[in-house]
Write a protein that binds this DNA or RNA. Sequence first.
RNA 1: GCUGAUGUAGCUCAGCAGGUAGAGCACCUCCUUGGUAAGGAGGAGGUCACGGGUUCGAGUCCCGUCAUCAGCUCCA
Length: 578
Amino acid sequence: MELEMLRHSASHLLAQAVKRLYPDVKLGIGPATNVGFYYDFDFSTPITMADLEKIEQEMTKISKENLKIERFELPKDEALKLMQDQPYKIELINELPEGEVISFYKQGEFVDLCRGPHVNYTAKIKHFKLLSITGAYWRGNEKNKMLTRIYGTAFPTKEELEKHLEALEEAKKRDHNKLGRELGIFMTEENVGQGLPLFMPKGAKILQKLIRWVEDEEEKRGYVLTRTPLMAKSNLYKISGHWDHYRDGMFILGEEGVDDGLKALRPMTCPFQYMIYKNGIKSYRDLPIRYAETSTLFRNENSGEMHGLIRVRQFTLSDGHIICALDQVKDEFKNALELSYYIMDTLGIREDITFRFSKWDPNNTEKYINEPEKWESTQKLMKEILDELGLNYVEADGEAAFYGPKLDLQIKNVYGKEDTLITIQIDFASAERFGLEYTDADGQKKRPIILHRSSIGCYERTLALLIEKYGGAFPTWLAPVQVVVMSLTDRTIDEVEKVYAELKAQGIAVQKDTRSEKIGYKIREAQVNKVPYMLIIGDKEKEQGVVSVRGRKDGDLGAFALDEFIKKIKHEIETKAR
RNA sequence: GCUGAUGUAGCUCAGCAGGUAGAGCACCUCCUUGGUAAGGAGGAGGUCACGGGUUCGAGUCCCGUCAUCAGCUCCA
């Protein structure tokens, strides 16, 4: 709260400095955030990064002037008069509910419409830094004018500010978008296109390990695998509603009236698995049916939205749909969550997850299926499940899918930005829409409930978060290269070849480096590449029949007999040790 | 899609009143047979993102396209 107040006051300091330097600027809003603050401005002429320094200097000057910060209130007509040159402020005042107190804060010549609270003197705001300058739509609506947003941060002490800036630099080194490329996990190529990462041998290896593991685990838990087309005729998407509501988000192929007409690459797997369900008659005895698919999806995201592996146009989701009777929903939901828990525990990211209960918005009839009773009953059911599980979740209105509420498992990236990793949804509407049914014990046809769920989320995004979580140093079982064998002199090259062949035969991902020059550099390189183990062989080792083992973080681990080392690493791989 | 910035060798970067591309590391060859990053000598590698324009002349100025980054909007 203290910190928020300081940062909010820092945003006013920023606004005052900008107003002094650019008297005709129009002010938007300027709140504190969880890492700093920002203020939105409407400049008559655009400013650049170079101007930030000037603005920062002016802020320091105002801080030193030590102006008193005072609150006062005005009736609406006087408030409007005071803000007559500030169209955005006038808009805000006019939208305040009748009878609401209209408060202002004044520091020296600067006055801003604001609810407060603030620190009492500008000199209290000493340790701040302006960080970036970007565009942002007025009131977050893309139909409105784009204003210039200046981001900054502020702290009570110089030490805290410096620590924060250092942490930002450190975060940059773990950023999957940088580290993932440096480690040779993925790349992009301008002729391939935006949001279409190419997985290089190391990245492909990690994905393969994850996919095999997840598919096997799902099978153990009663899922059956499907494999369905990556595209379909427009008919399918017309049934699902995507053709009318999600057309901009799809890649459309073919030509109207030619062959079988327009087709589209699939943006989701649901209708394909529904069609499999519909093939043949289903009895209540068949339920629940758990379909899983490692499903490649295509979504035509806007060009500015792509980001590394977090946001792409083609991605592979551990998708699946559980089709069950109403009285099975609770158990199936819990089991689906249990599977995700197991996966996150193994990967070591469970403690980083937060839960979001995403609900509908009754006022948004365009986005959501208009069946209020069903929404209410389904949300009630989900809330019951979440509370029975004792989950600590936040509720989010207007974040549900169009067919039902969601439980989203959220995770933060290295900069603190939150994304959905995994989602489990209860769908009360699609069975009706697609005509899914089963014959119940009483002989009546009934509509099943559908759970949409993912176990590990989308592989690209999950990989991105794993890169950041481990700073590229994957647990041994996931590491694309688990061991590098190096020769200290040319006399031991044969020995290196032998060890290499033995490890390879044991199914260990091994690389060899038989060139003996610059051994120090080679070790350094393996460390930079976060290879778990380096085996070094020289005359001494050859004579004693051992290998010198070096870990990427533990340094020298000593000499091992080869079979002893193999036993150690295989145990680590089998137990998926972290 | 919107606002702003960026795009020179595999990587990190230099070059800029517009005069025809450079360094370090990596890579290749030879010498050095070494003990925990960078020993010596030589070599190869660039349509300066792409396409137009201005100019006697463009990596450098202008326009467009593509890609990358930060953010907005949207989403797994």
